[in-house]
Amino acid sequence: MGTILKTGLGLWMSLVLVGAFCYAPTAVGLRELSRIIYFHVPAAWVAVLAYGVAMVEGVYYLRRRDLRFDAKSSAAVELGTLFALLATITGALFARETWGVYWNWDPRQTTIVALFFIYLAYFSLRGTLADAHRRARLSAVYVVFAFSVVPFLVFILPRAYVTLHPSPLLNTGGRVDMNPQMLLVFLAALAGFTGIFAWMHNLRWRAEVLLGGDGDGD
């Protein structure tokens, strides 16, 4: 079963790569640059999804006190950091080519940086705690507490400032501004990245459980 899933994911992502560069047409005005959406947007989506997973597993830990939930939570934060970095770098490259600068504190850049800071703070907190259960409990409290800023970052700040960022797929108008071929490749990339995240997350949290605690082998 696992082998079929893994092979399937490999084939799926290969098709996404071919589709992104050969099948999907380019957007008017952006030309070849528009192909970045098949990689940048899914990376940003996974960075946010990872935070959601970390938070939900944190809540589970606080309810059940099982260290496996802590391993799932911290593994999600690790992967979230990686994908937030990828989204930030690809986004900055796109910004440089289209807006002329790598960084201009666009609301979406601000949001991904805030997320990145939450992830980094989470690791500093874990680093100071030796006892596995106390570390799990306080990390879970922090990751859930950080969720309280999400409504401000996602809903309030981006509306208070002017943005140059292309409108997101799920925009307020509820309409999709993409031709069917682009949309197909885009949705396939989203699904593929989500699958890669699920696989990496599964490997990582089980490894942490085997290593005992935080993956530092003690």
Partner: peptide, 16 residues
Amino acid sequence: MLAVLAFPILFPLLIA
């Protein structure tokens, strides 16, 4: 430590 942990939480507040 307090600065490191509080900053991400205070980020939207400080901007606003």
